[in-house]
């Protein structure tokens, strides 16, 4: 019933947006776009932005599959979903000559392994998943690796992201496998590892991380570095740890889905986002690292030179880029994840 209502609603809504020609329909991470940025774009180009948000890649993927092509002009998938969408022919190839500001992107991020043939996605934000600890509660705690989280002394204390991919990555790393492993036997072993961890888990959450950690309702756990920076801005007891046994690096990209109705406007919107000034505003909004070299130069020094947001090359050597896993592995994830949450 709810689905039916939603569908009807969407039909009406897309009907309305068809009536207006000069628009761009953007579907991105909820926290990534501020009203100021949207208004600045509308003022500069006269194109109206319809922005809606999601809180997981799974949500974006399910919605795109459910409503078919044409509803959105710009989306913001993470790296591993970019390769999934390319494989299923869901993304338009991007003509970079139409993007004047494409040159602002750090060449290190261009032509990544998740988008090898041509350009389907514009890398924009990036970050890592690590461990946070509140020193007020754990003044002398020595914690350097993911394996440390399994110690029985942390019973019912850990904060976890509500994200199967992140949790399985941790377990796979501690087992010595790659977080991009699709081997079903390895994933089963990772599940057994996570079952042992579950007694230590206090809470799963991905949507209110900054306030939960900043207000000390959780004092030890795993976190994205951008969220950490926002929380640490008002809580000085927080420390971020890049685990020594390795960690995941993710990249969020802007892309144009197949069959987008306002492709020209989509190019204009992405080009606007790639401007140094806009990239700076985007980064200040969510404190995440940007691939935009010119934009980074404009950032205030505390964010630009933050060792948490832009870790040294030596630390980054331990990072592993997140890539797609196959469908069988994905089904295993879903199945095991459900069992874990019920424990």
């Amino acid at each position: 019933m709810i689905r039916l209502i939603l569908c009807l609603f969407l039909v009406c809504w897309s009907g309305l947006s068809l009536a207006e020609d000069n628009v761009v329909n953007v579907y991105g991470w909820s926290s990534d776009m501020s009203n100021e940025i949207i208004q600045a774009f509308e003022k500069e180009t006269g194109i109206k932005v319809n922005h809606s948000g999601y809180s997981s890649n799974e949500e974006l993927y399910a919605k795109l599959r459910a409503i078919g092509p044409g509803s959105y002009d710009v989306i913001e998938p993470s790296s591993y979903y970019v390769s999934r969408m390319i494989a299923q022919n869901m993304l338009e190839p991007i003509d970079v000559t139409k993007l004047k500001n494409y040159k602002n992107i750090d060449p290190e991020f261009l032509h990544p392994s998740y988008d090898p043939k041509g350009v389907h996605a514009i890398p924009y934000f990036w970050g890592v998943t690590g461990i946070f600890v509140n020193r007020k509660y754990y003044p002398d705690l020595k914690i350097t690796r993911w394996t440390d989280l399994w110690q029985p002394q942390y019973k019912n204390q850990l904060f976890m992201l509500d994200d199967p991919r992140e949790l399985f990555s941790i377990a796979l790393i501690t087992l010595g496998y790659s977080p991009n492993d699709s081997n079903r036997e390895h994933i089963k072993q990772a599940y057994e590892r996570l079952r042992l961890l579950s007694a230590n888990i206090k809470l799963y959450n991905s949507s209110a991380v900054v306030s939960i950690v900043g207000d000390e309702d959780a004092t030890l756990g795993i976190m994205w570095n951008g969220n950490f920076y926002s929380a640490a801005a008002y809580n000085k007891n927080l420390e971020f740890i890049f685990p020594e046994d390795g960690f995941v690096i993710w990249v969020d990209n802007f892309a144009i889905p197949k069959g987008a109705e306002h492709k020209e406007n989509a190019y204009k919107f992405i080009d606007f986002l790639l401007k140094a000034e806009t990239a700076k505003a985007m980064s200040l909004n969510n404190s995440e690292a940007i691939t935009n070299t010119a934009g980074r130069k404009l950032l205030p020094p505390e964010l630009r030179d933050s060792k948490v947001i832009y870790p040294s090359d030596e630390i980054l050597k331990r990072g592993i880029y997140q890539e797609d896993i196959n469908d069988a592995a994905l089904a295993d994830y879903a199945n095991y994840w459900e069992k874990l949450k019920l424990q």
């Binding site: 019912n156 976890m160 579950s198 888990i201 206090k202 809470l203 459900e338 949450k341």
Partner: peptide, 19 residues
């Protein structure tokens, strides 16, 4: 609630929406 504060209602929600 936390990670283990599951009620029957959550079980139903979980089965319908996520599983």
């Amino acid at each position: 609630g936390g990670a283990r504060s599951l009620l029957l209602g959550n079980l139903i929600e979980n089965q319908f929406l996520f599983a």
